[in-house]
């Protein structure tokens, strides 16, 4: 066998394959299952065929989370509220961290809502193989469906929590304590960037956790550290001038600054806060998909 890499699997719909059968050409195969694959052989056509599955998975996640709980969907709100209260008391009142003059409640809520989305996406995506080993071991469908499901399911949750944040923001706005501006219209872009970065990093980690399970421990710990390294509970302005450049290497920093600049009117924000995360997102997602695509074919043997 030479090292030449080529062609991967492709699935063709019923009608097409029947037509091909009638041409009766034995060389005319619909699919080839083999061991060597090009790194870049990602079958987007097949992924598209399974789009209904993606929708159904998202629906399943949303419908089943709070079944048989007394408070039901209220839990979507209870979590961020309790965290906000905790942060307001601990970081705001006890530690007296700066909020750039914004009301503490909305300041923390903005950070928590955005961070919650990022961290739950990243953690779930990185554990996608282990969490779904049962189903992956029994049936084939494009594995990339699962990380996409996670990112979209969490988006639903994020939107519900974001609604809560908006309620608080409107209240504080009516009290004249915050000054939102038109930048809030760019929020969808920020969310997409968050999703892509979380998914990209998650995919890279997922590939590694299948073999080295130690990483799972590291990830939950690492996410905590990462939160403190990101301006979630403090404004970027609280970082000393000479360390600013290090803080700016964090692709998320700009996005959190944006959130508070647009909705609360505090801090600073410029275009660079979008450009750098965009480049970062594209690069990390590209590598993530490559690695994921390679690992998905054999992970059942090692997981």
């Amino acid at each position: 066998m030479n090292g030449k890499k080529k062609f991967t699997i492709s699935m063709i719909s019923n009608e097409q394959s029947l037509q091909q059968n009638t041409t009766s050409n034995d060389q005319n195969w619909d699919a080839v299952i083999e061991s060597k694959h090009s790194l870049f052989a990602i079958n987007f056509k097949e992924l598209w065929h399974y789009r209904d599955l993606l929708v159904l998975f998202v629906r399943r996640d949303f419908v089943t989370v709070y079944k048989q709980t007394i408070l039901g969907p209220l839990w979507f709100f209870i979590q961020p509220i309790l965290t906000t209260i905790t942060f307001t008391v601990i970081f705001g009142n006890v530690a007296q961290l700066s909020t750039d003059g914004a009301p503490k409640v909305v300041f923390y809520m903005a950070g928590i809502t955005l961070w919650g989305y990022f961290s739950s996406c990243l953690t779930s995506v990185s554990g996608v193989f282990n969490a779904n080993a049962g189903i992956f071991g029994k049936v084939y469908f494009p594995r990339l469906i699962m990380p996409l499901t996670i990112v979209i399911s969490n988006l639903m949750k994020f939107l519900v929590q974001f609604l809560l944040f908006v309620c608080f923001a409107v209240y504080f706005y009516s009290m004249g304590q915050i000054q939102p501006n038109l930048w809030i219209l760019a929020l969808p872009l920020v969310i997409v960037l968050m999703a892509l970065i979380a998914m990209g990093i998650g995919l890279i980690l997922s590939a590694m956790t299948t073999k080295y399970k130690d990483l799972n421990q590291l990830i939950s710990f690492g996410m905590q550290l990462f939160m403190y390294a990101t301006p979630v509970i403090y404004p970027s302005s609280a970082i000393p001038e000479k360390y600013q450049w290090i803080a700016n290497m964090n692709p998320l920093a700009g996005l959190f600054d944006y959130m508070r600049y647009a909705f609360l009117g505090v801090g600073t924000f410029d275009w660079w806060g979008f450009i750098y995360p965009s480049i970062f997102a594209v690069v990390v997602l590209f590598f993530g998909i490559l690695v994921f695509n390679k690992v998905q074919k054999t992970f059942m043997d090692t997981v």
């Binding site: 066998m1 699997i9 029994k138 049936v139």
Partner: peptide
């Protein structure tokens, strides 16, 4: 498992024609 693409072979190839559904 190899035929249903749950895992891939270490060496070799399988050519198939038509949609495969597997019920493992």
């Amino acid at each position: 498992k190899i035929l249903s693409q749950v895992t891939q072979p270490t060496t070799g190839k399988i050519y198939t024609k038509g949609r495969i559904a597997s019920l493992l």
